[in-house]
């Protein structure tokens, strides 16, 4: 059973993501900011990370993604950006930081499930 980390500063978003993904039998770990996300990625070794970009003080989602990819121990964990930043330049930044997929808010439940399922199937 896959373990997923979701990092977002908004409780309702984390709630929605958790509800949606737990229907697939996946375990969800939650982080409410960038630093917490980095700690949990190292300690929990999730199978996939979902990252918001703006998460209040501390590193933003792009920074977190770069650090995950820079660390030998975590660089193979796929990262999905989940953010309201929908411009092409933001997407480019996300992919340059090492993200596997880039989803924009508002996201639909099936879109989220299918994206994650696809990535998990390939890794």
């Amino acid at each position: 059973m896959a373990k997923l980390l979701v990092a977002d500063d908004l409780v309702p978003i984390r709630q929605m993501v958790r509800i949606t993904l737990s229907t697939q039998g996946w375990t969800i770990v939650e982080a409410k900011n960038g630093n917490e996300a980095l700690d949990l990625v190292r300690s929990e070794k999730p199978d996939l990370v979902l990252l918001d970009v703006d998460m209040g003080p501390g590193p933003n989602g792009f920074d977190v993604c770069r650090q995950i990819k820079a660390d030998q121990a975590t660089k193979d964990i796929p990262v999905v950006m989940l953010t309201a930043h929908e411009s092409d330049s933001d997407r480019a930044i996300g992919f340059a930081a090492g993200a596997t997929q880039y989803l924009t808010k508002p996201f639909g439940p099936l879109e989220l499930i299918d994206t994650i399922r696809g990535i998990l199937a390939h890794s």
Binding site: L10, P12, I13, M16, A84, K105, P106, F107, G108, P109
Partner: peptide, 9 residues
């Protein structure tokens, strides 16, 4: 954002 997200869901 939350409003849009809830509507989308």
């Amino acid at each position: 954002l939350m409003e849009k997200q809830a509507t989308r869901y």
